[in-house]
Write a protein that binds this DNA or RNA. Sequence first.
DNA 1: GCCAACGTTGGC
DNA 2: GCCAACGTTGGC
Length: 139
Amino acid sequence: MAYWLFKSEPSTWSWDNQVAKGEAGEEWDGVRNYQARNFMREMKLGDRGFFYHSQSEKAVVGIVEVCAESHPDSTTDDTRWDCVDIKAVRPFETPVTLDQIKAEARLSEMVLVKNSRLSVQPVTEAEWQVVCALGDTKP
DNA sequence: GCCAACGTTGGC
DNA sequence: GCCAACGTTGGC
């Protein structure tokens, strides 16, 4: 199983919106970046991901699961863009802020730190464990 | 609200 | 195929 991170502006699509979709989950559509799309194409059913709020909040707030593998993005006719569906698994007991992540030496190689603009990114298993521990949340 | 970083587009 | 111009993102 692989681990990922999905970034969203809470004013556009928040953790609460995601939770409201329940088990059905929701398309992670609207991504128009090749790197991000390629990562989504690699995702497998059951892969886990962090749900990250960018902009004002800048914190990992929950855990999601891939519930549909890569398929065409329904918000465009452009065949270049694919996306996956994700569903909420559980919220973080304590959101883990970008500041905390930056302050943690074991997370210095995270894509979130290295390339802050990439909206869908891979997370290593070691990083996954550290962030979950910081958030007092079961991996 | 600003600005730096980065990705994409389009002209050559 | 290169590179300048432009648009967008996201941290501060």
